[in-house]
Each structure stands twice: as C-alpha cells, then as structure tokens.
Amino acid sequence: MTATTSAAPMSAATTDRTAVANAVPPALEIRGLKKNFGPAEIIRGVDLSVARGERHAVIGPNGAGKSTLFNLISGLIVPTSGDIRLHGESVNGKPAYQINRRGLSRSFQVTNIFANMSVWENVRCAVLWPRGGRYAFWRGVDNNADVAARTHQVLTEINLLSRKDIPAGVLTYAEQRALEIGITMAGGADVILLDEPTAGMSKAETERAVELIRRISEGRTLLIVEHDMSVVFGLADRISVLVYGEIIASGTPTEIRNSAKVKEAYLGEEAH
C-alpha cells in the first residue's frame, strides 16, 4: 500500500486528478470524526476526503471547529472517536511528530514560530528532520550543504532572505506569517494544512501570500482554512463548509456558491 502511494508521480495529480484519485487512496480521509471537550461536542461527526494534489478549503463561521479539526488531523489533540487516514494509513491518535514525519505539515492560526532564533534558524529547524539531521549530536550542522541549500531556497521563496539573520520575533506581522508558511513547507511535506494564513493581512499582503500559497502547493495536497472568500474561491478546487462541528456541504466552488443550504447557514450572514 505504501509502495503504490509513494511511487505515484506527484505532477500527475494536478493534471489528471480524477484518474489518480481512483488509482491511489486519498491524501487525507476522515471518517466519523468526533471531539468533545468535556461535555462540549466541538467536532460532531466529520467525514472528509481530500484527493492527492487537491486544493481543498474549509470555511465556516468563527467557533465552528475548523482549527480544532486541524489540531485533530495534525496530532496536536487526540480524537474522541472516528478515524483519520493519511495516504490510506491510519494516523489516528499518533503523536504530532510521527504524523509530520509521514508527510503532513501544518501552520497555525496564531503565529507559532521560534521567536528568539534567527529567521534562518527557524527555517533550518524545519528542514533538519527530513534531511537526516535527526537528533545527531555527533555531526556538525553548519557544514551540511544540503540543509543549507534547502533553507536558502525556502527563504528565497518566502522572500525573507534579506532578513535571515535577525530574530524571528522582531519581524513584521506579515513577515512572521510568511515565515509561518515557510516553516510549514520547508520539510517538503506533501500534505499541507494552512490555518487562516492571510488573517490580519492588508490587501496587498494577502495577494502576495496567496501567490506564495499557490506556488508552494503546486503538486501537493492543500487543506486550507480561510475567511477571505475571494481567496477561497480563487484558490480552491473543492470547498467544505463546517458549521457547529459538522460539514454541511462539500463540493466545487460553483456548487458551494449555489448551495441554498450554505447560503442560509453561512454565506448569507457573512457576505459583507
């Protein structure tokens, strides 16, 4: 099972999505997922399937449980019940670092970086594990050309190369958001979860961020929570609408736009 998934060419996914989707298990498959915090049912039975190479947006009002859903998928918290499969293999209840090593990486709604370390170090930390750095305390890190090259490449991509030596904590808000994405993508994970990457950004900053997201998700699977509807409809292949811990609709942008249910539950009140 693993062999078939990893052998499938990445680029094929974008060109012929349906064919590939039939051939290999979905990148992400969620069945009957539930999460309670004490008596509060926050995720109330979510089913969701994201095909390889798909850009999938999750929208929904504040407090619907979108971030909680991401926390469950990425292993930050353990589901109450249900199953989560990554490339066909269950990762349910696995610790976050194991899920990450299997190729799933996420960003956070509230910037979650290494504030006292330099921008360079921030990105390099995210490059180390998949490049074999592991817990090695017998090998130097500064002379690892492979790690340095990848770090350099990521910093170029998120446009922070000129800021690489300053502490991440003193970057501007938009720069920290870019770094957040940089750390998320640096390891080369093929399933990427972004939690409101453009929240709090200006119009111009949002445009640049979307451009970046489009580029880094090329040939990968993307699950994104986003409030800006122009971003969602411009970027996503499919959209799922989460309301009160349940997915009330899932489909193409056109289907979602025309769904009466969605309009009633969400889009109507949010259209501003």
Partner: peptide, 19 residues
C-alpha cells in the same frame, strides 16, 4: 549540531518542534 539547534527550538517553542 542538529541536536544542539533543536535544543534551542525546544527552548523557544516545544510545541512547534513536534510539527
């Protein structure tokens, strides 16, 4: 070393190192 750098990362933000 990689371990030494990750010590600093754990110091700064242990949660994020898991990801």
């Amino acid at each position: 070393t990689p371990f030494g750098r990750m010590c600093n990362a754990v110091r700064d933000n242990a949660e994020r190192t898991q990801f």
